[in-house]
Each structure stands twice: as structure tokens, then as C-alpha cells.
Design a protein around this nucleic acid. Structure first.
Lengths: 337, 337
DNA sequence: TTGTAAGCGTTATCAC
DNA sequence: GTGATAACGCTTACAA
């Protein structure tokens, strides 16, 4: 069956295609009775405008690319929900690109983004490099980076919706210094090294200011199937610090399990906090302290920012950097005093 | 800066645009030295073919739509990974559509799918209706439904990659009958009613064959923030069945927590199994039994099936239904005897 | 082997 | 108000 086009509708309604185009675009210069006639023809034929042809004619695809690491998919689902919802509101389509070790390098993703002529892109701040950003910049595609802070940003059409992990770590560690606790471990999460880097910076800064040196950045190689496996093993033989900071829920859960099995009492002998909150943290026993970020809102804000950049909103020219706040959630694995 | 087109390349290389088109499409009729000349021009100008224009010219967008419920995002991440990876291999772009209660109804999603002129669609078998499927069918968009079995399928270009949840439930319940256990509860998960329906069918069938009636389908209304909250409360006051089957990890975890707090021993007094496996099931204590499905593979298989349908592979004409197997994973919440 | 020109389905600029 | 017609950027017969 032949795909029906604007011509078919024009013929059916006995008008020119220009008129049909006018009614589907709500141009108000068309007379009421012909509008109705055209509408009926559209209805009758089941006509849907071809977005591809529109895209070509308008040099505008009304689609936005989202790129994120495949591994981070389930963790970022809330942010994605926020992104999708406001994209929907503004009638943007979403093109999804994932990066993963073997199959799709950032280079390919950029290639297909450029070819697709999307109007803008949302980039999760994971594992892309300076040069890769540069390419997107070269093609002048408006974008906003969401997640953590990007440094050394070329001024141009790139926005940033971020959490200041450095500040978070700095302040949190300082609050423990005040309790007299200085033996602190930070456990690396390989899935998001850029955020880990910022956390580490914050911790180191806090130590430095006290004239101490931070030395317990716990890292491990890829021989472990997961950070969970590593931690389970690691803490069975290594005496844990007074405070252990992990990035993800799974790491914290692994840690408390290992403690339990080794007979170490949490939070009496060691306290633990996961940076990223997740529902599982309150499902396990003891419940695990963490930080709450407004994930959904971050996504929504990021997408809103991008749409504003796309219509060249003046208000957005000034301020394309939005810092997102967070709150500490005290649960059973940390002590208040 | 003006977007550079095939004309610019043609001029730069001093050939016609047809020739440029030939080299970017690997047409082998072009002489080696002119190919090189064109390649150099492309390189020099940083030319990337406009996929929109290509789409229009070819009536083929090389993009595939994926539609799934927003709520199910994090749960389906593995399947999505599989889908994305093979889409990447076949050079398809992915358009992502989510459905959610308030904002985007299936109707709108279909509308934008049709307008986008995507080549095919992957549909997660959640909450769409017969008529909605019908619309897609009307526009002759090839699609494959992934997740559970669709019934009463119009023969045409729709495939199905599925798990037979009815069979799973039927066989599992029967295995417990053999152990002499007949007091069994099935806990509803509102996020995926189509799968729940199939599970329930299987359980009921097993009961029926034994001349019994299945009565413990545990459901609850939306006043609860989550199934977790409900279960925690429910099982604090209600004596649990000998075997409790939940759909998701969070429900099973809620249940064992409630048991723990109520002093009920698992698996001695009540056994629990979650249908969908997830890493958290082996992180909690006791570890929770479940079924393992090859999520990633399901995604990969579904996408591969779709791509075959798109090239009109003869081999696929016959068999567009692929059943996916599963294995039972015995952990600490169930007993072997 | 290469070039010319029609066509893909729209929108937008003109006239009328 | 409405209708021709030229873009938009590419592919692909058909000619040369």
C-alpha cells in the first residue's frame, strides 16, 4: 500500500498542497470551510505528515540525542524519565545512543549524531574526552552535559546541569573530622570515574587543609567481576576504616555484608555511606545512609535548559550552568554524634 | 557557519554530486583516483552526509523505535543493552519512546512513530491494547514485541520474542505440589500486568488439574506508595503461605524483611521466590531464589529478528516467534526437599 | 567511469 | 485566501 502524502490529501480535498501544508501547520490564513474540508480529507486518508520531509525542508528535526554509557542505564533511569517527560512536553523526539567498551565508541556515536542532524544533545558526563566534546562543538550542536561539573568549558552553546561532588565530599569529610574521625576510605567505582575524581579531590582538599594526607582511596583491577565481589573479599581480610564512603548501593551492600560475615559491627565499629541513593539502601538491614539527589528533576531541568537554548532564549544566554543541590540521608549505618 | 553539503564536496573535488554520492555509498563503479580525490575533499571539509536527506531519498530512515513503559526502565536495562548493541551492529539508530500514566499515552507515541517513518519498532509487552497494535499494523510498520507472549496475533509483520510465564508458573507450582506444598501465594506487581496475568493463568491451571482452586492472588490498591510498602505491612499481620511467589526483587526483599521483623523464619516457615532475577537478590540475606532469563540475549535476539524482517529475509517469514528459556536459581529462601 | 536530471515529501516565497 | 514553484540534500535511472 502506497504511503499517502500531502498530494493525496490535496487531491482529495480539491485544494493545492500549499493549503494542506497550511492547515497542518495551523496557519491561520486559511478559510474555515476549506480547513474543514482538508481536515476531513486528512482524517479519511489517515494522513500523517512525513517528519523526514519536514526535517529536510525546515532544517530542523525536532529530535534530541541522548548519549550515555550502557553500564549506567539502570542507575540513570530517573534522570532519563525527567529528560523524556519534558522532551515530550516540547514535542521533541529522542534518539538514544549508548557507549560501551567493545561495540560503540564515542567516536561512532558522534558520527551518527552529526549525520542525524539532531537539534541538540544531552550528554551524560561519563567517559568522554575533551576532544570528543570538541567535535560536537565544531558542528555547533547545542548540548547540555548532565551529571557532574565539566571543567574548562568552551563558551558556546554548551550547558551544564551538575552536582558539585567535590564540595559534597569536602563538606562531608569535614563533618567527620569534627567528630574526631579521620580514618576514612573512599571506594572507587569504575563506572563513573569523572565523579570519582571529583569526590577524591574534595576528600583530598579536606585532608590537606588539616595538614594530613589522604591515602585510602580503594581501587581494584578488572579481574573482579564486580565491585561487589571485590569488596566482599577485601573487607574480609582488611580492617575497615572508621568511615567508608562508597559510590553505589551495591558497593555499600557488599561492604555491610562482608562486615556482618566477619563479625564487624556497623555502625559501631565502622560506618558506611553510599553517595548515590537508591531504594535498595533502605531495603537492606541495616539501612544504609546516603545522599539524595533530585534525579528526575535533574533530567527535567537539563532538557528544559536545552530546549531554551534551541529557541535561543535570551535569558539562557547568560546562565547555562545549573548546580543541583543534595541532602544527606541519615540511616542506620552512620552515627549522629 | 553554513552546513556543508554534497555540492560543496563535489565542487571541491571537481566532480559531480553523483560521483560524491557514489563514493560515500561505496559504489564500486568509481575510478580509484577520483575516489581518492573525493575522499580528500570530504576529509578536508569535514563533510557528513545528511541522514535526513538520505532518508527522504531512500524512503528509509535506518532508525528503529523502541517503546517501553517509563516505570520499567531500570528493570529492562539489560534487554535494552542487547537491543542497542545489535542495532549498532546493523547501523540502525534508535528512537526511544516512553509511555507513562500522565504525560504520554500510547496514542501519542504511535503518532510520533508513524510521523518519524522509522523502519521498524520494538515494543515491550506492557500496557498497550489490541487496538493500539492495530494502528501500527495499519501503517504496516514491522515490529517485534518483546517480553511476554502476545496472543491472537494478526499474521503480518509482527514478531514476538517471549518468555512463557504461564508455563513457568505452571511447572513451578507443580513442583511444589510434589513436595506436598499447596498453600501458595502469588503477589501482584502492577508494573507489568500482562506478565502477571500469564503467571496467574499458569498457577490456576495447576490448581485446577489437582481439583483445587487458587485463591491467594495478593493484590492491593494504589494507596500504597509501592508494593514494598504494602508487603511490609501486609505480612506483618497476615500469616504467610508456605510458598510466596513475587514478581520483582523489591517485593521479595520487602517480604523477607517483614518476616524477619515478625520473627518468621525463612525458608523454614515460609519460602520465597522472585520471578525476575536481579543482582540485589544475592546481596540480601538470606539470598533470594529466582529465575534467570537471558535478558541481554532477549534484546539481542529481538533486534536481530527485526532487522531480518526489515530486509525481508525469507527465513524469517516462517518463524517470527521465538521462545526464550529460563533456569531456576535455588538460593537461601527456598528448600530443595 | 562520470554527469544530468527526476524524485523523495515537505515548507516558504512569491504571485494572483 | 489560495496556488505555483523553488528550495531542502540526497539517490538513482538514464545518458553520455
Amino acid at each position: 500500500m502506497k504511503r499517502i502524502t500531502i498530494y493525496d490529501v490535496a487531491k482529495e480535498a480539491d485544494v493545492s498542497l500549499a493549503t494542506v501544508s497550511r492547515v497542518i501547520n495551523d496557519s491561520n490564513v486559511v478559510r474555515e470551510d476549506t480547513r474543514i474540508r482538508v481536515q476531513e480529507a486528512i482524517e479519511k486518508l489517515g494522513y500523517k505528515p512525513n517528519a523526514i520531509a519536514q526535517g529536510l525542508a525546515l532544517s530542523k528535526t525536532t529530535t534530541i540525542s541522548i548519549v550515555m554509557s550502557e553500564k549506567l542505564f539502570s542507575y540513570n533511569s530517573k534522570i532519563l524519565n525527567g529528560l523524556m517527560d519534558v522532551a515530550k512536553i516540547y514535542n521533541y523526539n529522542i534518539m538514544l545512543h549508548t557507549t560501551s567498551k567493545g561495540i560503540s565508541k564515542m567516536q561512532d556515536v558522534i558520527e551518527s549524531i552529526v549525520k542525524s542532524r539532531v537539534d541538540g544533545v544531552i550528554l551524560f558526563n561519563d567517559n568522554f574526552s575533551e576532544e570528543e566534546l570538541e567535535v560536537l562543538h565544531l558542528y555547533q550542536i547545542p548540548m547540555v552535559v548532565v551529571g557532574s561539573k565539566i571543567e574548562d568549558k568552551k563558551d558556546g552553546n554548551v550547558g551544564n546541569v551538575y552536582i558539585d561532588f567535590e564540595k559534597l565530599a569536602y563538606e562531608f569529610v569535614n563533618s567527620y573530622f569534627e567528630k574526631g574521625i579521620t580514618d576514612i576510605s573512599l571506594v572507587e567505582d569504575k563506572l563513573n570515574l569523572s565523579m570519582m575524581h571529583q569526590l577524591r579531590q574534595g576528600v583530598e582538599k579536606a585532608y590537606q587543609e588539616k595538614g594530613m594526607k589522604f591515602e585510602k582511596y580503594i581501587t581494584y583491577d578488572d579481574t573482579y567481576r564486580s565491585s561487589y565481589d571485590f569488596l566482599t573479599e577485601y573487607f574480609e581480610t582488611t580492617k575497615p576504616s572508621e568511615l567508608v564512603i562508597t559510590f553505589r548501593d551495591s558497593q555499600a551492600i557488599a561492604f555491610i555484608n562482608a562486615c556482618h560475615e566477619a563479625g564487624i559491627k556497623v555502625p559501631e565499629e565502622t560506618q558506611v555511606v553510599a553517595i548515590l541513593d537508591d531504594k535498595y539502601l533502605r531495603m537492606v538491614r541495616p539501612t544504609i545512609s546516603s545522599f539524595n539527589f533530585p534525579d528526575y528533576d535533574m533530567g527535567a531541568i537539563a532538557m528544559r535548559l536545552l530546549t531554551k537554548m534551541l529557541v535561543n532564549d535570551e535569558a539562557v544566554k547568560e546562565n547555562k550552568d545549573i548546580e543541583i543541590g543534595y541532602t544527606y540521608i541519615q540511616r542506620q549505618t552512620t552515627r549522629l554524634d
